[in-house]
Design a binder for these strands. Structure first.
Length: 337
DNA sequence: GTTTGTTTAGCGTATT
DNA sequence: AATACGCTAAACAAAC
């Protein structure tokens, strides 16, 4: 894998797959979701290589978005007209690149019903598992959500030294606290390792990260009214992107427009775009109002990107994702490797 | 008309 | 060798 020079890939093709690039773009945005056009923009802004042959790579990128389960499509809200939906990362896709190569994933990410998988083994175990998951989710949400600004789970809370910290100890929470978590696709992690971390160490770093990230927190933050109104029942309610979430993964301010701070926003209802082939028929989710919280709070040491901040990736005002996403089969699924 | 999204297909490469 | 993954191309439909 070519090792690009510092700060720029010049015209060389970046050593990242489209999946990586897309994930970077999504992660760079405070809302952790971007419309396709913004993903394009991010990639072109950051990688000059992709300023040419746009039709070719953009077609490939779209293919990847649709084809790979690690990307979730989130429809726009009705009051936010625009083309296309928003794209987010599947909460459980964090360890796709466990082998440290962003050119080639360890294994293709696919969603599969956790319960189904368990049911394949033992029904009683499945029930026990689901009960435990529900408890852990409650605990994790209670421990983190009450204090964390929206982005704290992505290490952004560390920008201000505060933010999250909610901390550890409970269930899925690691001792390092949620505020230092950086999603594997956060560009700090993706690019920083290029310069900072020898491969093996980077791998362990990646491996230390859990297989997910607190998407639920985002969702809750994005659509607090959904929760407050009882449309979605959740133990936490957080501020929107105006509440400290104005920084992207690069430490750059990210404009959170539209519904960000408190604009009138009717939530679009994200739908499970990629229903798992194995349907949930015959199986009822244990706690529909208690979304799947992956072990996202298993933190990695904070890594600073040597790359200078460039552009605030997103100026879009995404439709805030809905809890229905977490209730969907998508959220009840697990990464299957 | 353009953009977005889905799907299928083929090929090359890496991994097992 | 078989399989998995990534990339590219293309066709098509839907939305804007």
């Amino acid at each position: 894998m070519p090792r690009p020079g510092r700060n720029t890939y010049s015209d060389q093709k970046p050593p990242y797959s489209y999946i990586s690039l897309t994930a970077m773009a999504i992660q760079s945005c405070a809302e952790k979701m971007l419309p396709l056009s913004e993903i394009y923009k991010f990639i072109m802004d950051r990688f000059p290589y992709y300023r040419e042959n746009t039709q070719r790579w953009q077609n490939s990128l779209r293919h990847n978005l649709s084809f790979n389960d690690c990307f979730i499509k989130i429809p726009r809200r009705p009051d936010q007209p625009g083309k296309g939906s928003f794209w987010a990362l599947h909460p459980s896709c964090g360890d796709m690149f466990e082998n440290g190569s962003f050119l080639r994933r360890r294994k293709r990410f696919k969603v599969l019903m956790a319960a189904e998988r368990l049911a394949q083994s033992k029904q009683s175990e499945a029930a026990h598992y689901l009960q435990q998951q529900a408890k852990l989710r409650l605990s994790a949400l209670a421990a983190t959500g009450a204090h964390l600004p929206q982005m704290s789970g992505y290490g952004l809370g560390g920008l201000g030294g505060g933010g999250g910290g909610g901390g550890g100890g409970v269930g899925l929470l690691s001792s390092q606290g949620a505020s230092t978590f950086k999603h594997p696709f956060a560009i700090e992690n993706i690019i920083a390792r290029e310069y900072k971390v020898p491969g093996s160490l980077a791998f362990s770093t990646m491996q230390s990260m859990s297989a997910g990230y607190p998407l639920h927190n985002q969702l809750t933050a994005a659509w607090p009214h959904m929760y407050n109104a009882g449309v979605i029942d959740t133990p936490i309610s957080m501020a929107g992107c105006g509440g400290g979430g104005d920084y992207g993964a690069y430490g750059m301010p990210i404009k959170c427009h539209g519904g960000g701070g408190g604009g009138p926003s009717l939530p679009a209802i994200p739908v499970p775009i990629k229903p798992t082939p194995t349907s949930m028929a015959g199986f009822s989710a244990p706690q529909p109002q208690q979304p799947h919280i992956p072990a996202f709070l298993s933190n990695s040491p904070p890594s600073l990107s040597p790359t200078s901040p460039q552009t605030a990736a997103s100026q879009s005002s995404p439709a805030t994702p809905s809890e229905s996403l977490t209730n969907s089969s998508t959220m009840r699924s697990v990464a299957v490797h």
